[in-house]
Design a protein around this nucleic acid. Structure first.
Lengths: 111, 111
DNA sequence: GCCTTTAGTTACCATTTAGTTACCACTTTT
DNA sequence: AAAAGTGGTAACTAAATGGTAACTAAAGGC
């Protein structure tokens, strides 16, 4: 148990704080994928082919709990679930946009 | 072995690419810590108290290999090592700056 | 009757990442 | 003689993350 005491000490660092929300391997990509559109579970999975459904489910749940995305479930058969960004999720878009820009400039045209 | 094939397919996504460089739990904080100044190993460790020396060493090595930071070793006794951002590392600053801004607005004044 | 579709859940295992503890080398200070 | 200071490394353990396979629901198609 290291965390409890240290977090409060370190949350002087705003970067540490945000990493607790979007610091996972997949979360920025998921948010990036939802940046402009509401998408169904299957659509997200199709756009991020290497994520497994289980992990996608877990990550979406965490993002939902952190109030970054909204999950709307339609009780139909077959089921339909739509995900979209909340206001807080949308407020991350400058970060994602900078990441996208950097990626385009530094990775895409180098390979 | 999943990666090889999928990476090339997915590097249409610039966010995926950048996450391979700065996606770890500590890397953004380390880069943020070096954003304006050259710092010694011990200084970085002091500013990020909950990271262990081992993990800090590992992360610094990876950042160095990815050409984001520069490591300069002075052969003195006691030894001195200075880390600073490379041009490529500095080019990440808009991202770090947006993260810092978001953290300040959304986390710091909420708690 | 069985397969398909969708968005999961559950159980279980493997891999990756992170953390702890002890220790080194070398000189100066106490 | 021993401790302090610096930037680590090695061996080991723990935690986080990722993956697979089997299962669910209800209606439609063959």
């Amino acid at each position: 148990m290291v965390t409890k005491g240290k977090i409060s000490e370190e949350v002087k660092c705003p970067v540490t704080g945000i990493l607790q929300l979007i610091g996972g391997k997949w979360k920025p990509i998921i948010l990036y994928c939802l940046r402009s559109e509401t998408r169904r579970f299957g659509e997200i999975a199709a756009r991020i082919p290497s994520i497994s459904r289980k992990v996608l489910t877990e990550q979406l749940r965490e993002l939902e709990q952190d109030n970054l995305i909204l999950r709307v479930q339609f009780n139909e058969i077959p089921p339909r679930v739509e995900y979209s960004l909340t206001a807080m999720g949308k407020s991350l878009s400058p970060i994602l946009h900078e990441m996208e820009k950097w990626g385009l400039e530094n990775i895409m045209n180098k390979k």
